[in-house]
Write a protein that binds this DNA or RNA. Structure first.
Lengths: 343, 343
DNA sequence: ATTAGCACTCTCGCCGGTAGAGTGCTAATT
DNA sequence: AATTAGCACTCTACCGGCGAGAGTGCTAAT
C-alpha cells in the first residue's frame, strides 16, 4: 500500500488541484508543504502514485492531476470529514424557517439552499412513502361534467386531477358521493383499493379509477418531481469552459435526464454515498460531461414512513469534505423537520 | 424612407444573417438574390442603410450585420407573417392531448412544446384570474395541532398550506368548522373576505387568516410559477459561444430572474408583442447577455376571466416570422382549451 | 534511499507573414 | 444622376517558427 509520505503527497496534490484547477508539480508541492524532500524525490513518489493509478499526466511534461481512483482513495481514507462550521449550520437552518408551504416548495427551497451552500448543483426530491394511504378526498364541480378530484394522502401530500364524468352532476350529489367514498376508502393503500368488496355506483366507480391512477403514480415515486438548482455553479468551473461540454450538461438539465440518471432509489438506506466520475457506468454512459462530475447523495426521512434524497452534482475536482458534510447536515435537518411536522 | 431596393437588400441581409450567423457582404447578396446591380451599387445602398441605423459593421472590412433597429423594421414592415405549416400545427395540438393534469402540468407541457417548436427557450405561466374566488375549503388534521388547509379556488386552482393551530383539534371538529366556513365564504373574493361581518370562533379566525394570505399571493400572480424550458437551444447558438455570456444567461435561468425580468403583466391585452435586443431597458439592464436576445410574448385566455402568457426567448438573430406565428398559434390553442375546460 | 544535474518534452504566448474577404473611394460609363 | 469597374486599403483568420518556462525522467553521485 501507500507509504505515509505518498499519502501526504497525494493529499497535497488533490487539495492543490481542487483549489486551482491546474496540474501540480513536484517543486511546488515541496515548497508549499514543507516536505523534507527534494523535488526529485517527490517526482519519484509521484511516479509511483501514478503507477498505482492515483494520479495521471495530462502530457509528458506537466504536473500531476488526480484520477477518479485518487479521489476515491482520498474520500475513503485520507479525508477527515469536517464538522460543518456553526455559521454555515445556522445559515441553513435559518433559511428553512422562511417558507411554510407544501412539500414541493419545501424541497425546492432545500435544493436552492444546498446549491448555494456548496456552490454546486443540487437536487432534492420531496419526501415520499413506499405505499401511501388515502386520507381524504373531495369532489368539486367545475363546469358541466368537468369535475375536480382532490386527493389528500398521508403526510399531507395533495394531488389533484380534473376528470370528466359521464354525466353532469350537481355539487350536492358530488359531495354526497365523496362522503360515502371517504367512509369506505379512508386509510387504505393502493393495494387495498384494488380488491374492492364495496358496492359502487357508476359515478363512484369512475372516481375510484382516477384515485387508483393517481396513487399508482405517487407510489411509483416519479423523480420528475425533483428540484434542481445551481447548475450555473458547475458550468462556471474551468473544466467546463469549452462550450460543447456546457451543452452536454445542459442537455441533462433541460430534459430532466440528469435527475433520472442519478439512481437515487438504488442507494444504501442511510449515510452519504459518493459517486466519482465514471465510477457509475449508468451515469457515465448517460452523458459525456458526466465523466468529469461527481455526485454526493444523502437520504433524509425515515425509510418506510417518508423519505427523500438530497444530492449534489459538481466537478470531480470538488471540495469533498465540505460537500459531504453539508449534504449530511442538510439531510439531518430535513429529517428533523419532517419528524416535527408529522408523527 | 427606404427605396424598394434598399428594403430588399435589408431583407436579404437579415435572412442571410439569421441563417448563417456571419456578417454578409455585397457580392454574396448580389449573387444569391439576383439583384440587377453590381457589388459596388449594393455597397452603396448598404452604406445608406447603415446611415439610417438599420445595419452595422463589426469592423472596417467585414460584411454587414443587422442592428436592433434593422430587425425592428423587418418585423414591422418587411416580414409577412407565415401561416404555421399544417404539420407543425398538428404536432402542437397532438402533444396537448397527452397530459390531463393540473394547470401547472399543463403550463409546463406548453413550455416544453413551444421550446421544441421554435428551438429556443420558452416561458409559460399558468392561467390566472385577476381576483379569484373561493370555491371550497377543507381542513385535514395531520398531527396534533398541525393541520392541512386545502383551498379550492375558481378555475380549479388548488392551494395547500400547513397551519399550526393554537390547540389540537380532532378531525370531526375541523370538518364541522370547514363546513361552516364553506357556507359563509364560498364565492367570495379576497376583498370581500376582509370586511368580515361574520362572527367567528378563534379556530375559524385562524383559518381565515391563512386563507387571506394564500389568496393574496394568488392575486398577486407570483410569476415564480412560470415554466421555462429549452434554454439549451439559445445557449447553443454561436453568439453565446463565449463562456461568460453563457454564464450571464444562466444567471437569469437559475435565479428565476429571467422570468421576473420579462414584464409579462405590462402587455397590450391581445396580439403578440416583440421586444428586440436592448429595446426594453429593464431587460437590457437586468443582464448583459439579454442585449443579444429578443423576446416574443403572447397572451392566452380571456382577460378578466383567466389568462396567462406564453413567451419565447432567443437571440436577436432569430426566425421572427416563424416564432411569432408559433407563439400566436399556441396562444390560440391554449385559449381554446381553456374555454373547453371551464365556462 | 535520496538528491543533484541534465537533457528532454510539451505548452503557451508572441511575432510576422500571407491569403482572403470585403469595404470605401474615385473616375469612367451609361 | 445613377451605376459600375478598378484599386488601394483594412481587418481577420490561419499558419509556422521561436523562445521562455515549467516540469518530467533518467543517471550518477552521495
Amino acid at each position: 500500500m501507500l507509504t505515509e509520505r505518498q499519502s501526504r503527497i497525494l493529499e497535497f496534490v488533490i487539495s492543490e488541484y481542487v483549489e486551482n484547477a491546474t496540474p501540480v508539480g513536484s517543486q511546488f508541492i515541496g515548497d508549499k508543504y514543507r516536505l523534507r524532500a527534494s523535488p526529485a524525490t517527490i517526482r519519484h513518489e509521484m511516479a509511483e502514485l501514478e503507477e498505482h493509478g492515483y494520479l495521471s499526466h495530462p502530457h509528458t511534461s506537466s504536473g500531476r492531476v488526480p484520477t477518479d481512483h485518487g479521489y476515491r482513495f482520498f474520500v475513503e481514507t485520507l479525508m477527515r470529514e469536517e464538522q460543518l462550521p456553526w455559521e454555515a449550520q445556522q445559515t441553513i437552518r435559518h433559511q428553512f424557517h422562511q417558507v411554510e408551504g407544501g412539500e414541493e416548495a419545501w424541497a425546492h427551497l432545500a435544493a436552492s439552499v444546498l446549491a448555494r451552500a456548496v456552490e454546486n448543483a443540487a437536487v432534492v426530491t420531496p419526501p415520499r412513502t413506499d405505499a401511501c394511504r388515502i386520507k381524504h378526498l373531495e369532489l368539486v364541480s367545475l363546469h358541466d361534467a368537468t369535475t375536480l378530484l382532490v386527493l389528500v394522502l398521508d403526510q399531507g401530500r395533495l394531488k389533484q386531477q380534473i376528470i370528466t364524468l359521464d354525466d353532469a352532476r350537481a355539487q350536492p350529489e358530488l359531495s354526497a358521493a365523496a362522503e360515502r367514498l371517504n367512509k369506505q376508502l379512508s386509510g387504505r393503500t393502493l393495494a387495498e383499493l384494488g380488491r374492492s368488496d364495496l358496492e359502487t355506483s357508476p359515478l363512484e366507480r369512475q372516481v375510484i379509477d382516477a384515485v387508483e391512477e393517481i396513487m399508482g403514480e405517487v407510489d411509483e415515486g416519479t423523480l420528475d418531481e425533483a428540484y434542481l438548482e445551481g447548475i450555473r455553479h458547475v458550468l462556471s468551473q474551468p473544466e467546463f469552459s469549452s462550450s460543447d461540454r456546457v451543452l452536454g450538461l445542459l442537455d441533462l438539465v433541460d430534459e430532466r435526464n440528469l435527475i433520472r440518471a442519478i439512481p437515487l432509489r438504488a442507494l444504501a438506506g442511510d449515510g452519504v454515498t459518493v459517486i466519482i466520475g465514471a465510477e457509475n457506468p449508468r451515469l457515465a454512459a448517460a452523458n459525456d460531461a458526466m465523466r468529469a462530475c461527481s455526485v454526493i447523495i444523502g437520504r433524509y426521512g425515515a425509510p418506510g414512513v417518508a423519505s427523500g434524497a438530497v444530492a449534489v452534482l459538481g466537478p470531480t475536482r470538488m471540495r469533498y469534505s465540505r460537500t459531504i458534510s453539508t449534504v449530511r447536515y442538510l439531510a439531518n435537518v430535513m429529517s428533523e423537520l419532517l419528524d416535527e411536522r408529522y408523527e
